[in-house]
Design a protein around this nucleic acid. Structure first.
Lengths: 359, 359
DNA sequence: ATCCAAAACCCGGACCGTCCGAATTCATCC
DNA sequence: GGATGAATTCGGACGGTCCGGGTTTTGGAT
């Protein structure tokens, strides 16, 4: 006797194949008692659901027909100290999210908690009534708390390093890897005294991934002269100049392109004697202002989108048992504030360490 | 305009859906000239065959009920210096992979390059003839090269930090985050002189993520006395003892539980005066031998599996344009080699820095 | 030229499990 | 009693496959 099919089993039970299918997948459309009956009968008959077949069928059935498949929500907590940079970052993420969502047949709506009296509980009811189940949480200042939402209804991804309330899957740039790649590139160009300045609060949020990579590679790249990182809570000119004069780094890495003026004030000529790399291209004002690290936020957004949609298609809701972090390394973007890479032969001309002492 | 289907395309061409289906699969039942016409039209209309859907349909149609399962390949490069630890690691990954694959309707077959004359080109033909398209590459010593495979046929994930040939999505433990979490835990238990010993080659492979996190947190955790990390290419007792005596770390972190004996030889009592944490629980011989970091390899495996299957279902083949890294932090596992966490009040009893000087 | 069998080519039917909207049943409240 | 709405079940349509059966073409013998 061949293994039973949904239809044969349904006939035996006096139900329709649809009810069987729904029951076996635990759909709330079927009465609990019926579900139990179906499960018992299926077991007795040796019927086993094939999840792969199910997934394929589901995808097939769902994707065809009209374009419209669903709506995702991009949620953002807007506070008073929401900087223009954060806004730019989130807008950039959004463009990637929207594009990818559209390509996969989804629409995206953006919600801003804190604006127009929109609170989390209110958002919860809005999402519920609208039937929105896929969420992308945009980065928020500090350590945001989204526990007020009714999480068993949603599947979500946080578009930043780490979130604890609740613990969701995250998508973010790989700052450690980015710093490693940058230092290797600078090393290949002959720089031997890399210097880093960094806002403490910023790196703390990233668990010191910028500086961790900096410290480790300073130690292991050959021929490096170690320059201690400059830490600050607000960047002061005098402080920076003192650090710059004291250690004379041949390349300065940090978030604020404005320091290039200060470097020049100390007698540096860029890129002849000293160099600068901005650690976040969104902080630059012009494209060719300086070499920089491009976080590729649109790609991060699109990846976040894929994750959420993947979970939606697999009917996975709620807070994940094992949250994961998905990262993409930043892209090094060359610029006029750096020497070009030495051509062809690598070891012939050992790059000249800049000896420009000011004063 | 919705994506075309076999039927809509057939209508357009004045053929039947069956002919289209046969033609696209290269069946000899269809005239060569017709096949060419169909292929051209399909390309023009943007129709893409999903081989997985095809396989499911086929098995469904052919052997009614007989459970069909998709097949994934787990590929591993076995070299002479394949250590028992690497074997354990991969076996552990495999268990997670197999479980998750089964739950999603797939079977997994393991291939070992290097054994029984299995070369990459030969594997390529085997996979091709068997119609296997989803690959999970298990970690290999050094920097493996899989470019010999015909990549436009496959979709794959590498189960380690980073792969360059070709550049695939990766799934791996988050060593940086793991070290951060561990140091915070140790700090909370009152340890103030954490010491790290590390095989250079091992950390280099991870771009110094262990030591990067160690260096950064040494700097930023309050009240820490910095102990320089002990680097080695092969661990020597005399070297370790010299380091241990000189810096007297109150907790030692590293990969080899064997050093506990050496510590005792220097007069340390564990956990009364000194402590030890193994950075990889797979290196321990007994479960309760010592506190350790558990990489949760089965979970890593299951996540890798999900990624591959997701891409299969979405009909995505070839090398990804933007490879990403998915990480999961290791789980701290308490053990008898550590003091218990101070109960309730955090700051009342400042943890006593061990003063056990030997000799 | 004519015939006919065989080969080449193409098509319709039936099928799987799923999704969606509609139909049916059941409980509840004026 | 009738209307409203929720709970539950059902029917139709779907896409890609295999199989058996059509229809056209080929080619050799008369």
């Amino acid at each position: 006797m061949p293994t039973p099919t949904l239809r044969s089993l349904a006939l035996e039970l006096g139900l329709s194949r649809t009810t069987l299918s729904d029951a076996l997948r635990g759909s709330p459309r079927v009465k609990a008692e019926t579900v139990a009956r179906v499960l018992a009968a299926a077991k007795a008959a040796g019927y086993e659901r094939n999840p792969l077949t199910g997934a394929v069928m589901s995808q097939l059935r769902r994707s065809r027909g009209q374009q419209f498949r669903g709506v995702l929500a991009a949620v953002e907590i807007v506070t008073a100290d929401h900087t223009p940079l954060a806004a730019r970052y989130n807008d950039s993420l959004m463009s990637g999210i929207s594009d990818r969502a559209e390509a996969l047949g989804f629409k995206v709506e953006r919600f801003m908690i804190g604006k127009q009296d929109l609170t989390l509980p209110r958002l919860d009811t809005i999402l519920h009534t609208r039937g929105i189940q896929g969420l992308i949480l945009l980065p928020a200042v500090g350590f945001p708390d989204f526990t007020a939402l009714n999480w068993e209804r949603y599947t979500a991804v946080y578009a930043d390093y780490y979130i604890d309330h609740p613990r969701l899957h995250c998508v973010c740039s790989d700052h450690y890897q980015s710093m490693v790649a940058l230092l290797q590139e600078l090393h290949a160009r002959g720089y031997r005294r890399p210097g880093l300045f960094m806002e403490i609060a910023l790196d703390e949020r990233l668990q010191y991934r910028w500086e961790g990579a900096f410290l480790a590679l300073q130690k292991y790249l050959p021929g490096i002269t170690q320059v201690p990182a400059l830490q600050f809570s607000t960047l002061e000119r005098t402080e920076f100049e003192a650090w710059f004069r004291k250690y004379n780094p041949d390349v300065v890495m940090g978030h604020f392109p404005a320091v290039m003026e200060w470097m020049k004030g100390c007698g540096a000529r860029i890129p002849q004697t000293h160099a600068f790399v901005c650690l976040n291209s969104l902080r630059t004002t012009r494209v060719d202002e300086c070499a920089s690290m491009d976080f590729q936020t649109p790609i991060l957004g699109s990846r976040a989108c894929e994750l959420v949609i993947g979970q939606l298609l697999h009917n996975e809701f709620g807070v994940p048992t094992k949250p994961s972090l998905t990262t993409i390394p930043a892209l090094f973007t060359d610029g006029p504030t750096l020497r070009a890479r030495a051509p062809a032969e690598p070891r012939n001309k050992p790059a000249v360490t800049s000896g420009a002492k000011t004063r």
